[in-house]
Amino acid sequence: MPSPLVPIEIRLKRLPHGEGLPTPAYATEHAAGMDVVSAEDVTIAPGGRYAVATGFAMAIPEGYEVQVRPRSGLALKHGISLPNTPGTIDADYRGELKVILINLGDAPFIIARGDRIAQLVAAPVQMARFAEVKELDDTVRGSGGFGSTGIASS
């Protein structure tokens, strides 16, 4: 696989309702995520969810995924997030990218066509397989689950 600093090519097909919108792009030189914009006007009520159209489909190279992540400013200022964050777009999906947004705030959130709604991060996929065993090796943590390592730093 190419180095993370060498961009992979993701082919993008613009759909009719996405004409005139910007292609997902990095806002700064060292940004990890590309901003993606809405292809429609929509208002999401408090507690509501909506799959926002982006106006494009894409072909992700085999061995990669595109992760859809919330924008930190929308999360902090308005309570707008993704209920399935990070969302995964698989290399074999060819339909329109829609971003599932949720309004965790206390006011309706208005999205205008062209507003930045999420970030896209291209990431390599590591395939795995499971091997059933009778026992697992011991660790210091063992089977300690949620919160078992505490809150305070040592």
Rank of each mutant, 00 (worst) to 15 (best):
P22F: 07
G150T: 07
P86Q: 01
L76Y: 13
A152S: 13
L21W: 13
L5W: 10
R116G: 11
D92C: 03
A31V: 11
D92K: 02
I44K: 05
G55F: 01
A128D: 06
E132I: 08
R141N: 11
A25E: 14
S154R: 14
R129M: 10
N103T: 09
G73T: 15
A59T: 14
V66I: 10
H78N: 03
G79S: 09
N103W: 11
Q67H: 04
V125P: 06
K13A: 08
I60V: 11
R94M: 08
G150E: 05
D35N: 12
L21E: 13
G95P: 14
H30V: 14
V42K: 03
S3E: 12
V99P: 02
L21M: 08
S148P: 12
G73W: 07
A152W: 07
L15G: 13
A25T: 15
R49T: 12
P4T: 01
L74Q: 05
S153C: 00
F146S: 05
R49W: 05
A59S: 13
A51F: 03
A45L: 12
V133K: 05
G47F: 08
G95R: 07
A122V: 14
I100V: 15
P24I: 05
S154Q: 08
I80N: 01
I111L: 02
A123Q: 15
A152F: 03
R49F: 10
A27W: 10
R94T: 15
A118H: 07
A31W: 12
P4H: 01
F130G: 08
D137M: 04
L101H: 11
R71Y: 03
A122C: 13
G55V: 03
L21H: 09
M127V: 06
L104I: 14
V36W: 05
G87I: 12
R113N: 13
T85G: 13
V140G: 00
T88F: 05
H78C: 04
A32H: 08
T139Q: 10
A128I: 15
A31I: 15
T139M: 05
D138E: 09
G150S: 07
D106K: 07
T88G: 13
M58D: 06
G73M: 02
M58I: 00
E40T: 12
S38W: 11
I8V: 14
V133C: 03
E132Q: 02
P108G: 08
V99T: 03
D137K: 00
D138I: 10
I110Q: 15
A45C: 06
R94S: 13
G87Q: 02
E19Y: 10
Y26D: 10
A128R: 02
L5G: 08
E9Y: 01
G114H: 07
Y64L: 04
T149S: 10
R49A: 11
D92L: 02
A122G: 13
L5D: 13
I102E: 03
M127E: 07
L101G: 11
P46T: 06
I80T: 04
F109H: 12
Y93L: 01
P7E: 08
S81E: 01
A91C: 10
A51Q: 07
D90S: 09
A45H: 03
A57H: 04
G20R: 06
S3T: 07
V121N: 03
S81I: 10
R141G: 15
E40D: 11
T43A: 04
R11T: 12
F109M: 09
A45E: 08
